[in-house]
Design a protein around this nucleic acid. Structure first.
Lengths: 243, 243
DNA sequence: AACCACGGCTAACATGGATCAGTCGGACGC
DNA sequence: GCGTCCGACTGATCCATGTTAGCCGTGGTT
């Protein structure tokens, strides 16, 4: 039961049915578990020989800093998400990672991962599915930055986060706990923190959703979906072809 | 020699040394070669059972249409690039593909690909490297949309395209042929076509680069690199760990 | 030859969001 | 208890970019 209850197993199980053996192989994967305090970077751009993790507890963000000093957050990772899956295949990490809260993460050894894939194809399929979903999220994020205005971006972002959290049992259609500051939102959505504040007030006054003191509440879920043009199909595309 | 001269082989060879046998396995991969006229979509979002291709000739773009009718181009593919590598693993294609010029593409059968990977690890490494580079480009694109202004975005985009084309022998530091319309640029860079025109004029008047009649000329490469804060390390990261 | 469609190009005007310059309240250190 | 720091919050102003409404040249069609 312990494994099944981990956010990672919950997420994968939502889309590929995993057997007892699959789950056991999954739990064998976890290497040493490490804790990181909030705030200090876990890795930064250009670092050599990086490690991959599965997030067990806490939130982190992956970002890039531009020469001008501004930053762009590419993605947030929540419990159950992979961290640095790509940078373990290639020698150089191409972005920095900052823990937003206190974090617990399990190290993943690349060779163990490949071995488990060879033995348990369904597990490989599930992990690939997760990686592909992450990529789809980045693309959707890109589309938002290019073609959505600030309120839509904000609404879309909160709805996506909510959907991801529900998958691991940390949120409902009513809302979720959210440790992000308005600066995090600004750096993710390509806005200034000042404007983030204005947009949040707007959403609150329009009765769409309320973000206050680390809590997101969806005041009118359907109306928010409509305003943000949120189409969640990119989050739960069909599983991989291999049965 | 024929295989070695294909844009795909040139691109891969630039980063992973491939043996004669690797190259032979590569040429076996190519399935039926198909031609598509410019303009009509090759595939659209939501399509089932899509196919993967390697582009042999011509340019295409992958894009998403928003409910409002605007579109965001996620990426351009040029000869040697994969097309729909991810959508072959998953049942649904999550974006549309439009040929910009007349296109020739070779169909890739998923099972052939996996088989080739099993037999020729270096080939697998090379293809993975290419996929990873594509992902890094999407991330860089996202950062640009979030945190760079229009002239920087434009400069960055043209420099990146130039670097990619040089890799397959279709451009130099002096410039390259470019079949994109200003509308394509607008949809890729998240701008209006009017503003694209303004920005291009600006770059020309500043002596940085000239885009006219299907030709990009870098008038002052180094100054353009500096203005756009172009750091090409994301394009040629080290190869994968597996030797 | 006349027509039309399309892409490049431009000016005038409108506006979303950035920037600047703060206030305020709560948490924390001493 | 007092400073200090951080994040939320706000108003005033400015500017980058969008929008609207065209013109022009070219190439294709009838």
């Amino acid at each position: 039961m312990k494994v099944l209850d981990s956010p990672f197993a919950r997420k994968l199980s939502a889309f590929v049915t995993l057997s007892e053996d699959d789950l056991r192989a999954l739990s064998d994967l976890y290497g040493r578990r490490r804790k990181y305090p909030a705030g200090r970077d876990m890795s930064h751009e250009g670092q050599k020989n990086p490690v991959a993790y599965i997030l067990a507890e806490g939130w982190v963000c992956s970002y890039k800093i531009l020469p001008s000093g501004t930053r762009q957050i590419v993605d947030f990772q929540i419990p159950g998400d992979f961290l640095g899956l790509r940078s373990v295949l290639f020698r150089t990490s191409d972005h920095s990672v900052e823990p937003i809260t206190r974090v617990e993460a399990s190290e993943i050894i690349a060779s163990d991962l490949l071995e488990a894939f060879a033995k348990r194809p369904r597990l490989a399929a599930a992990v690939l599915w997760a990686a592909s979903r992450d990529e789809a999220m980045v693309v959707e994020h890109l589309v938002g930055l290019g073609r959505r205005d600030a309120p839509q971006r904000m609404g879309h972002f909160l709805l996506e986060l909510g959907a991801r959290l529900r998958l691991i049992g940390r949120g409902t259609k009513a809302g979720f706990d959210c440790p992000l500051s308005q600066y995090h939102l600004a750096d993710a959505l390509g806005l200034s923190s000042v404007h983030v504040n204005r947009v949040l007030r707007q959403l609150r006054e329009d009765g769409l959703c309320t973000f206050r003191r680390g809590q997101v509440e969806f005041d009118d879920y359907d109306k928010l979906v409509e305003m943000a043009e949120f189409d969640r199909s990119y989050l739960d595309h069909d599983g991989p072809l291999l049965k």
